[in-house]
Design a protein around this nucleic acid. Structure first.
Lengths: 203, 203
DNA sequence: TAAATTAGCGCACAGTTGTACGCTGAATTT
DNA sequence: AAATTCAGCGTACAACTGTGCGCTAATTTA
């Protein structure tokens, strides 16, 4: 078999194994090189053939998580295009994603407030994409000034991610309740932004 | 010297040392018993005279952090009583607290999404106090129905804590900007809740 | 076919961890 | 004054960590 292929395969096995280890009681900084190697079925020292560091693996995982997140956005956009309440569809899509990619989202959440500033920064970049895209949408469809739209989008993304955090530990029924709650809260923000804009024009 | 006193003193030294270790790159689960003992100036094994476990120390720290948080609330209430914008005063008080108790707040934030479900639960309880108190305030002063007030308070607390998280890594100037931003976002939520209540009476 | 590259391995080492055990000396109680 | 309690210590051990080093065997290149 091809050598590069083989190597890429092993590398992917390392990444997947790492995600598997990121369950409800482990963070990126809490998994050890040896553990990952064990899970991937390679010798500890072979790890270095793929990553110079366990931190490099960490950043790779954050990247992969970001990728998944962008796929989520794309999916939400498609669903929105085919009609329905934007907020409702977005939240539902988001929650669906979380339930199906628990560990991926867990990674983002944990490292968002985690102990490594490099990881924190990497996660914030990924979330920023979300906020920017939402902001564009608000400007285009709700016709609010950029400044207000940015604040609105920022608040909304924060609320949704917070809800997602809660959903991680919740069962199906609870996830539904959380989704309903955040939908109303997002409605608050939206109505409030419009109202604020009316009474503070140009600010 | 009194023996109980002496012991309480050592115990407090352990707690303080632990807080010191919780800087920007360490979480509760990442500090070791030996490290804490070293910082507190006792032998590793002496630790067990005070806590049965490092987890027990962790829960104690969360409790202490919660205590500090409630003091913060009291302080905010006092300042509000002497006049001024409620939101503005609350946010400023909160930010002031964070800057002055970085590690205490860091602890709460980290463990809120951390790897120990026991810690997560403990932190959520503390935050819940905040939300409930704010909810009461909203019902009393803004005359919104309980249901709406709960949702509003929940959203507001989440936004404020999120802003606090950002403030942890920020300098004085940036903290001010963050505070300004969240104040407007809180205004959104408040206006939106009122507006929502008008158009959905009784829901 | 011969030479070079390299993914993966085993061994080794020093450093860290939690914690069991028994001792000591001082404070407290009797 | 004698007996008891107990905070703190030192030693010890097994388990784990990251990583340096040199080997092997298979693929790739020349």
């Amino acid at each position: 078999m091809n050598r590069q292929q083989q190597k890429r395969q092993t590398r992917q096995r390392i990444i997947n194994s790492a995600f598997t280890l990121l369950d409800e009681n482990r963070s990126l900084t809490a998994i050890s090189l040896r553990e990952v190697a064990r899970a991937a079925g390679i010798a500890p020292t072979s790890f270095y053939r793929h990553f110079s560091d366990i931190n490099e693996l960490g950043l790779t995982l954050v990247d992969e998580a970001g990728l998944a997140l962008r796929q989520l956005m794309r999916q939400a956009r498609q669903r929105i295009a085919s009609g329905g309440s934007v907020v409702s569809i977005s939240v539902d899509t988001f929650m669906e994603f979380i339930v199906q990619n628990r560990n991926v989202f867990r990674l983002l959440l944990r490292e968002h407030t985690g102990t490594s500033s490099a990881f924190r920064a990497a996660v914030m970049r990924e979330i920023q994409h979300f906020t920017e895209e939402l902001s564009d949408y608000i400007v285009a469809h709700l016709r609010l000034p950029r400044k207000i739209a940015n604040l609105q989008a920022d608040a909304m993304v924060r609320l949704v991610f917070n809800a997602g955090a809660e959903a991680l530990d919740a069962d199906v029924k609870e996830v539904e309740q959380i989704a309903d709650r955040v939908k109303i809260q997002l409605r608050f923000v939206q109505l409030g932004a419009v109202s604020f804009n009316s009474s503070n024009p140009g600010l």
